[in-house]
Nucleic acid binder design. Structure first.
Lengths: 349, 349
DNA sequence: CTGAAAGCGCTTACAG
DNA sequence: CTGAAAGCGCTTACAG
């Protein structure tokens, strides 16, 4: 099984010779595409182990048109880097590896459509995981034309027959609002992403805001929704705007990781203790980040790694033809993790 | 150039026919491995554009033993996920793509040596970028045996002839200590990673601590070095230990992203304003994280994306035979970015 | 400066 | 249940 430097890498012919069968029989034993007697299968198996045989990916791919490689399209400039995206990617990667697939990381911008067409055409990848999906996403057209199989993490405006895995933003909104309403808060704020990001067609921000407004209505609480620049100062400004809009605000739900520290700092600077006087809940903030804020952050959101895993599984099923016809579309429920940033509403003064 | 669904993907034979040359001439024009007349080259180029030709990766790989794929080995369980690692990876990815290479993300644990041997043997990748390198790293032996080309991000105990890109921790230590000493601080703390991590052979923590002690000696200031659990409570405890060890401590240098918020919170809880009474400097904290602390964090460290890029370039040169013989070994200087967490030492009381 | 041909290591109809 | 043979789309000695 272990070979030292210099030994030739064994081929299927070597395995066949050692097992006393023809190369094609070895191939059939591997692909399972026709029945092999148990005895023969055993001998082949043993020969493979003895020689430490691994099939050559290129020969296999050349003939079978299957690479066992999937690409994850993560245009890194979109939102800057964040731990959440990383968790998706690693969830997908782990699962792909378990299923015998490799994961190719593709970081070209979402506008590099020629590059994408090239990737599709080389035959290098069997399928694609599309991240940072916009409501109107030109990559979808390219992938369709190239007949490349793909699964979206997120949704475009009209997913129709397309496969996707997405967060159930309505449910997340409800979870967050009900948590705060249950603690007695009657005047909430919702701080989401900056106007430019939303305008550029990142669908989740829009769906989440609509969900928040609906959930607040249902829970019978007031909710002020604001856009917010994605940095510390943006968060500061958002806090000021929020209080200007509704001075009775005692809690905020934020969907803006970069702005949240500034928002909290502004609250503290304004004489509010968190959570005694003011509660903060974040949507889709990774646990690791939630443990680094002071106080630690109450969060609502699905487990990103699970979503990445589900997307990878969905894609692989489609590639292997186990999922034909009907689209697979999956919404993930968020979980509420109560930490130290949310608490009972203060007594009205 | 654009082809709609159903059209056959053009091959080299199609290009050759259209250009009125033999397939081999097309190949030579692409690889550049023998001279081609300018006229012929033009016709071939035009034919490729007309047909939207892209070489089949598998056919190429099968013959040439070159895949133009490099793998980045990032055993994600090692340190948990962090933005810094992500920046290395994306820096490497961008550069690989610019150089015509694909990047495969390999997230198996560092102990999955059989998997690694398999990867090496399949011939799928031309080379490997090794992350999270330990002082004694068994992966190195596996890669050597398989004769796979690799570059380390970090160093093992005895890099010898191996290629690597690493942070110049001595220089970073000096930068941090001199910054604080220059601000009048005479009693510093150094809070690094937890004892288990260091004992497991993560080399950088050890090198950094030694560098800190040396730099402090040279600058004529006292420095208390501590290990610290990588979470908020660890940071709290570290602050207490630090003051117990040297009550005159007025500044701390931390190499522990997860613990830093706790450390700062403990300082504030202990009645110290940052930076008026107590300064904090972090080593190797990504800018994005540094902007999220309150106050924003003064940092020392190299630009991770640049290191990833340099490592990718080093690897590709080695793969393409532009770098023969002598090892490429490169240390990156850190930069000091002064933000709001460090300031002049307080008046002694 | 260019062509014809062999072959990389598999998979998969075709045949028995 | 198994084998012999063709061929996937390139690269690269060999030949001119």
């Amino acid at each position: 099984m272990s070979r030292s430097a210099g030994d030739k890498v064994p081929t299927m012919v070597d395995v066949a010779r050692r097992a006393g069968v023809s190369p094609s029989t070895v191939s059939y034993a591997m692909t399972g595409s026709r029945p092999i007697s148990e005895a023969t299968r055993q001998r082949i198996q043993q020969a493979m182990v003895d020689l430490g045989y691994r099939p050559n990916v290129f020969a296999r791919g050349l003939k079978s048109k299957r690479s066992h490689i999937i690409a994850v399209l993560f245009p890194k400039n979109e939102r800057g880097m964040n731990l959440g995206s990383m968790e998706y990617i690693f969830g997908a990667s782990d699962h792909a590896q378990d299923r015998g697939y490799h994961l190719l990381l593709w970081t070209s911008g979402a506008d590099a459509l020629d590059d994408l067409a090239g990737l599709a055409q080389q035959g290098l990848v069997d399928g694609v995981l599309l991240m940072e999906v916009r409501l109107k996403d030109p990559r979808i057209e390219v992938l369709r034309n190239s007949e490349l199989i793909f699964t979206m993490l997120g949704q475009n405006a009209d997913p129709g027959e397309l496969d996707y895995v997405d967060t159930d933003f309505d449910q997340c909104a409800r979870l967050a609002v009900e948590h705060l309403a249950g603690l007695g808060h009657r005047h909430l704020g919702f701080v989401h992403q900056d106007a430019a990001t939303i305008a550029s067609g990142r669908g989740n921000a829009i769906r989440l805001r609509d969900g928040m407004l609906r959930a607040a209505r249902e829970a019978g609480v007031a909710l002020t929704a604001l856009t917010c620049q994605s940095h510390t100062d943006g968060g500061r400004k958002a806090f000021a705007e929020l209080l200007a809009a509704d001075p009775r605000t005692t809690a905020v739900i934020a969907f803006n990781e970069q702005a949240t520290p500034g928002l909290m700092a502004a609250a503290v600077a304004g004489g509010r203790r968190i959570p005694e006087d003011f509660s903060v809940v974040c949507v889709d903030m990774p646990a690791q980040a939630a443990l680094m804020t002071t106080p630690t952050m109450t969060t609502v959101g699905p487990v990103a790694a699970d979503m990445g895993k589900a997307a990878a599984e969905m894609l692989i099923r489609r590639i292997e033809g186990q999922q034909l016809g009907a689209p697979s579309q999956m919404l993930f429920d968020g979980e509420l993790v109560v930490r130290a940033s949310s608490g009972p509403a203060p007594e009205p003064r």
